[in-house]
Nucleic acid binder design. Structure first.
Lengths: 98, 98
DNA sequence: TCTATATATCGAGAAACTCCGATATTGGAT
DNA sequence: ATCCAATATCGGAGTTTCTCGATATATAGA
């Protein structure tokens, strides 16, 4: 759990927004073809943030490198979901050290 | 309380370190001439982080713009201390939204 | 096999960040 | 008034981040 890497990952509002959206999938991704239990397709973020496909992919990759999200690759799709373990550990660490 | 600005301010390990040092002044700044209750002199950080005076000043300025610290200017000195109100509000907000 | 779709990666330009030395500003002391 | 010490600001070099379009990869389906 690299605190600095996580804080850098959170230092862009779009990435924070992605994490917040994933907290309530049924609210923000109700039109996804696949069941929400599988995670959120990368393309879903694209539609909602107004950025290009490659930019969204890069942001998701940043979140993944910081271990804030996990990816399940199924066929041609990448399903993203929050890594609650890392997020909780980070929040606890931040509260106790900051 | 601008969450994005705070997260960007925390996205540099030196600034996080400054905040952590200020949490225990008697431990990290025991050699300060002025009483620690006044806050921590800018020069104290310089001695401990190995960065130049101008760089330290800029980092402290970033923390101040994010309202993570407050400054008391007394004579030619600038005494810094944590703004616990902002820090607590930020941690609460992060825990509830992230 | 060929085509379409989903995602990742590459290359490049713009913007932001980091750091420094030099200079400016401020206030105290002589 | 002058000098010194503490801090802030400026200007610039180097690095990183953000974003895009183009291209690559990988899978599904006809």
């Amino acid at each position: 759990m690299d605190k600095t890497e996580i804080l850098k990952a959170l230092a862009h509002p779009v990435r924070v927004e992605f994490l917040e959206w994933m907290k309530e999938p049924e609210r923000h991704f109700c039109d996804q073809a696949h069941p929400l239990e599988m995670g959120i397709c990368a393309g879903q973020f694209e539609k909602r943030c107004g950025l290009s496909q490659s930019t969204v992919s890069a942001h998701l990759s940043t979140l993944e490198k910081a271990r804030l999200v996990k990816i399940d690759r199924v066929g041609q799709w990448a399903f993203y979901h929050r890594d609650e373990k890392t997020i909780a550990a980070f929040l606890d660490d931040l509260r106790s050290t900051l």
